[in-house]
Nucleic acid binder design. Structure first.
Lengths: 246, 246
DNA sequence: GCCTAGGTCCCGTTA
DNA sequence: TAACGGGGCCTAGGC
């Protein structure tokens, strides 16, 4: 058969002994994708047990472990970049143990019977993404008048003990303005974030006010702003970064 | 070879035409796992482009689409459940287009050349998890004195326009107490959450105070509580739900 | 290490 | 549907 793919190092259905061999040989050197019947225990920030079932297990080159079922975006269990130990328990059972040091967490996957194992060299290209909050802040920092007519930029990304202020402006009257920017509809949390920055500067004795900038806002958030003397400015980012799909 | 696995419906390296056939036949009926050279465009809440590279693509039964590279817990691109997948094929290229209706988002995966495709019936067992915030609220609701000596439970999960209060108590003097519970170290957001519930009830004319319950707290959060007349009660959940791993 | 914010967060729940 | 809280959230960045 001419049917090969150069990135696929190995692929097939294997017995437990060979699974251990493959994992020992390729873990952290390539991505290992397995379909196995397994039961799972996790113990750490929380703890969980999953009964025996057929699952998709992914061991990535950076030590990431993902266990997926047939539904859901999120894995059933996982371990971020961490180390893994394999142990063959018996003729028909293999234990994969992934340990995270801090916080201390253990994920134990007990594989029974045969597994379909694919060892493959995946890429690590990453992607170019547009439309992040950062992009909007960039636009606004270059055009402070979009927020307040005649305002000038004082600073960006200003640290306070309670978090980082997105943009700091001076309005035409010389008053300081704390600006919090959201890329999507602003909800209550954004208003409180802004509120606590404004409060912080007022306690320092500065005469400041706060503006929340977002393309949209929830009703209760708008009310919250009003109740606390904060302002809302509607702003939808220019489509500069938009990508059209063929 | 006696090497089979009954959950694996199909497995092998296929040309573009057969890839389309397999997706047509099995999408939403089984989980389709592919290793393919592909380029990707995404457009929706944000937008992104990924250059051609070898990636792991998962099409789940519920319509979830995941694209993984060799590193990271999170997928490079994805589409949540109930997305619709359409295919288009040319000489040597297959286009998989996953569409989410609301918000409108499109993920376009252009596969070139051969793919390793595994079609498999994965489980949907889910798991039993312990140590969620809910468990701690349960404990505390049954023992309000753990929070305030002599207090009695008034209600749980009380809705306000600004979110849901975890626990409402009455202290021995008859005063209402708003309680916010965290399963892990409390950070600034938790304090503000509590603050806005307390504020809401005060504006209604009620005489209430607020208590944040958590196993630990950050310094600035503790300061925030003090500055706003809120209290902190340290509480580590009993290990009732703990699971010991063999 | 602590701590905060951002995310195409996802996901469940309730009004 | 909108809107909010929870999550083993993950990840990046500042200190």
């Amino acid at each position: 058969m001419g049917c090969y793919l150069k990135e696929v190092i190995s692929s097939g259905i294997v017995e437990p002994a060979e699974l251990v061999e493959l994992v020992n040989k390729w873990f952290r050197r390539a991505t290992i994708v397995m379909v196995s019947k397994c039961s799972i225990s996790y113990s750490g920030r929380a703890s969980s047990i999953a009964r025996e079932s057929t699952r998709l297990i992914i061991l990535k080159q950076d030590g990431t472990v993902l266990v997926h079922e047939s539904v859901g975006s999120n894995p059933l269990n996982w371990q971020p970049r961490s180390s893994i130990v394999t142990k063959k328990i018996s003729e028909s059972e293999v234990e994969l143990r992934a340990i995270r040091v801090s916080p201390r967490e253990e994920l134990v996957i007990r594989v029974t019977g045969r597994s379909l194992v694919v060892v493959v060299e995946l890429g690590d290209e990453g992607l170019t993404i547009y439309g992040k909050e950062e992009d909007i802040i960039e636009e606004l920092a270059n055009n402070p008048s979009r927020i307040i007519s005649g305002a000038t930029l004082i600073a960006r990304e200003v640290s306070t003990p309670y978090g980082r202020v997105d943009i700091m402006l001076k309005d035409p009257s010389g008053k300081l303005v704390v600006v919090e920017v959201k890329r999507a509809r602003a909800e209550i949390e954004a208003a409180q974030q802004l509120h606590r920055y404004v409060e912080y500067y007022r306690r320092l004795g500065l005469d400041v006010y706060g503006v929340l900038v977002a393309p949209d806002i929830s009703n209760s958030t708008l009310k919250y702003l009003g109740d606390h003397g904060l302002k809302y400015v509607k702003y939808s980012p220019k489509g500069s970064g938009a990508i059209s799909l063929l």
